[in-house]
Design a binder for these strands. Structure first.
Length: 360
RNA sequence: GUGAACGUAGCUCAGUUCGGUAGAGCACUGGAUUGUGGCUCCAGCGGUCGCGGGUUCAAAUCCCGUCGUUCACCCCA
């Protein structure tokens, strides 16, 4: 026998038994997005490399060392998309969506590619749901986007998630704050770990993430971005919170919450699950008011979220879920019957959730 | 990129401590039985023990390397 060939490192096959859950989740998501007025967008799986370099940010790890970049036959540098917001923004500009009624609301379910070393819930190709709303800087829209994700989680019965909320400020107030933070870190340099001393110059906001006890103690006394927002950002943040409360969405203010892309401004948020170990983020997002302009479009604010398949190839399927309630008829389908015509049809609406790898 | 654990039939694993040329259950195939393709019973198929070196009379078992998986760090979905 010839040498066996297996799926590339960090990738996985999605077998017939996984499809019912997958289709069910996508169906639920599509339904929620539709109810909120989002239309589906599909873009190519690869884009010109400079779209991500500019959109995601040259200083991010994604752009610096995690992209699947290749040269096509015409000598152009192309990259398998590592995230969805930049391509969506590109499509917004390319198709003149600024002439559509604003905000333009888009959703997608796409595979993403990152050259990382795989570990729990982290793959080289994974699927993400996302929504993006372009063309409105209203804080009410931020709260709505968070509401969409909360509704989706509620709809599929995802349990034990909590929402963390922060504001990253804008190009007016963040630079001032970062300078202030840098000065603080420089001052306390001696008390920081080796990693943090590097972070202090490269990406000072990340020093808040450090798990080293000494660093945590120092960072307790560090200036907090949330305290140094400009009046406009502070007001924006306050309105977002008020509208979360109006929707009855519980959240935890977390001034240390920093997400991976450079494009975030003002609102950032993340739903986390206590049961996922180190990879606790389930989904999150935020506002990106400068992104469209950065990639060559007209100044256009935007806000969105993405939800990654953290634990299971079939997507959200393996997350812990609440028991099905009596009236919610559209619960998760069970695995198809062993025998039968081979259609893989769900057994029925009342089947209990099945979790775990390969389950359901 | 760093560290640790692991890698034996399609699947879940035993065997590795104290080296002696591979086992179980499930699945699959065939048969018996049975008013179903269900149950039970019988039989069978199936592994160069991830790969490559080394030590040894002899390696799944010890040593080195390599690839892969998992978990953690980094970072992040």
């Amino acid at each position: 026998m010839a040498e066996k060939i297996s799926a590339p490192k960090g990738t996985y096959d999605i077998l017939p038994r996984d499809q019912p859950v997958r289709l069910w989740v996508e169906g639920r998501a599509a339904d929620v997005f539709r109810r909120y007025g989002y239309g589906r967008l599909d873009t190519p799986m690869f884009e010109e490399t400079r779209l991500f370099a500019r959109g995601v940010g040259e200083s991010t790890d994604i752009v610096r060392k995690e992209m699947y970049t290749f040269q096509d036959m015409g000598g152009r540098s192309m990259t398998l998309r590592p995230e969805g917001t930049a391509p969506a923004a590109r499509a917004y500009v390319e198709h003149g969506m600024h002439t559509w009624p604003q905000p333009v609301k888009l959703w997608y379910h796409w595979p993403m590619f990152r050259y990382e070393s795989p570990q729990s819930g982290r793959y080289r190709q994974h699927w993400q749901f996302g929504i993006e709303a372009f063309g409105s800087d209203s804080p009410v829209l931020d709260a709505e986007v968070i509401g969409v994700l909360a509704t989706l989680y509620d709809d599929i019965g995802l349990a034990q998630v909590e929402l963390r909320l922060n504001s990253m400020g804008c190009r007016e107030c963040r630079p001032d704050y970062v300078a202030r933070l840098r000065a603080f870190l420089e001052d306390r340099k001696g008390e920081l770990c080796k990693d943090c001393r590097e972070r202090a110059t490269l990406n000072p906001l990340r020093t808040f993430d450090c798990k080293v006890e000494g660093c945590r103690a120092v960072m307790e006394q560090a200036p907090r971005l949330i305290d140094w927002l400009c009046p406009a950002c502070a007001e924006h943040h306050a309105v977002v919170q008020r509208h979360l409360e109006l929707q009855g969405i519980a959240y935890l203010p977390d001034h240390r919450l920093v997400r991976g892309m450079d494009y975030y401004t003002r609102t950032t948020f993340e739903f986390q699950s206590a049961v996922l170990g180190a990879q606790s983020g389930v989904g999150g997002g935020g506002r990106y008011d400068d992104l469209v302009e950065t990639i060559g479009g007209p100044p256009t604010p935007g806000v969105g979220f993405r939800n990654g398949s953290r634990t299971h190839p079939s997507g959200i399927g393996a997350f812990p879920r609440r028991p099905a309630h009596g009236r919610g008829t559209d619960r998760l389908p069970s695995r198809p019957h062993r025998r039968g015509p081979g259609t893989g049809l769900p057994a029925g609406p009342r089947a209990p959730p099945a979790g775990g790898r390969g389950g359901a």
